[in-house]
Design a protein around this nucleic acid. Structure first.
Lengths: 230, 230
DNA sequence: AATATGTAGATTGTTGACAAAATATCGAGA
DNA sequence: TCTCGATATTTTGTCAACAATCTACATATT
């Protein structure tokens, strides 16, 4: 007896509403600082206000929305100093994950990690040479996700994803300059090497360095763009 | 013109309900794995079910309760492998915070940090010599909070607090053996020294080491207690 | 003109009721 | 006795209405 499971993952209306609001925010239909009107959203989405309210509340926990009692919910505005904090937080978690991945690989708990990382880096190199920036972007995310998965720490991964999304929200503009990609790729190689060597400390350091460099690249690009705008 | 502010801090009913449920969990009135009955809680607390529901939903984001659609909310059960993950996560954030604190102190952004840390360590040493374990416990928390505060990263602090609370839930039994306290104190000294020297990398390493040692001490004590139980 | 006050409208906070799903109960048949 | 299945009860999901609070605008006051 076998059948396609129906309704699996189909969850509550509130969860679907949450996903929809989340999409609206990440895709820019709702901009930073904008107020979320419960009634308006409920009409647009065709559910009751209570359901929308529940969705908004659950979003607040992820940092995408700020709640003020009796005043409502607002799309979180990320300041520049917060961006630095987000980078540091992301770096801390990523470094920890790389250390854990190295340990687990060394113990034989992640047998496929080596080939997965090698394949990813190879594809990334190909994307770089072909100057296929969108592919590079996807592969870049995959690289980090591979290591997060290998760390086998779901809560850390959840936090990492939240931080990533909030950062993504801030820097809508791509930061994909050819030289940046080349350097980033080298850093990936260094991380993968340390992890596959099973060296926890080296993995952590390489990961930390990667995020730090990423922040520097971000700041440089942001400054340049700001000058270009002026 | 001056008057006492009224209604400050008084928030919504749902927030108060959340705080109350949180208390019930942390104080053990609701045990791990137990189901949270919305109606029951609403009667006990004298608010409507919807309000309780909102409180429970907001707690889910902090990891204290797990939600299952159409089945309800359950107090999160922390497994042993999760404990290790929590230690690692806490270590990552604490190490990052110590690094940031070192940088900020070096830049003159946290002028009071040096004396605060020195005072804390001195009091801790006094508590150790007097064998006042409860005081030691409070001072230990304060030490970590001082550094988290100096890092000036609110989101990191929020996550740290969540993790800390979840860990606290798991290990009800104290782990305060005299020799442990002495070693822990030495590690604190090392951290403070690195931070006040403004050395980011050394601060991170010292913090990481501290949490790692803490985990080892925890495992040793837990194993010993398990043997004693058998 | 600038500031305070009052009032109407809009929005959030809270509740109770109904619908849908899950769980418990109980009996029939092997 | 045990398993399966129908039924009753409990519990969650969703909604609409009411109450409390905030916001915006008009009016009055200096």
């Amino acid at each position: 007896m076998k059948a396609r499971l129906i309704g699996v993952g189909r969850s509550t209306l509130a969860e679907e509403a949450r996903a929809e609001i989340e999409r609206m925010i990440t895709e820019g239909e709702l901009t930073a600082g904008e107020k979320l009107n419960e009634l308006e959203l409920s009409v647009v989405m065709g559910v009751s206000r209570g359901t929308v309210r529940e969705a908004i509340r659950s979003l607040a926990g992820s940092g995408l929305v700020d709640l003020i009692a009796n005043r409502g919910a607002f799309v979180h505005e990320t300041t520049l100093s917060e961006v630095q904090n987000l980078y540091e937080l992301r770096g801390a978690i990523f470094a920890m994950a790389c250390g854990a991945a190295a340990r687990r690989y060394g113990q034989g708990d992640e047998p496929r990690l080596a080939e997965d990382l090698a394949r990813n880096i190879e594809q990334m190199n190909a994307a770089r040479e072909a100057e296929e920036t969108p592919n590079y972007y996807i592969l870049n995310i995959e690289f980090h996700d591979l290591l997060l998965a290998a760390a086998n720490n779901p809560k850390a991964k959840a936090i990492y994803d939240n931080v990533k999304r909030e950062m993504h929200l801030f820097r809508r503009r791509g930061l994909s300059i050819a030289s940046n990609i080349a350097r980033s790729l080298e850093e990936h190689r260094a991380i993968a090497e340390a992890v596959i060597a099973g060296d926890e400390n080296a993995s952590r350091d390489a990961a930390n360095e990667h995020i730090r460099q990423g922040f520097d690249r971000y700041m440089a690009t942001a400054t340049r763009q700001r000058q270009a705008d002026a």
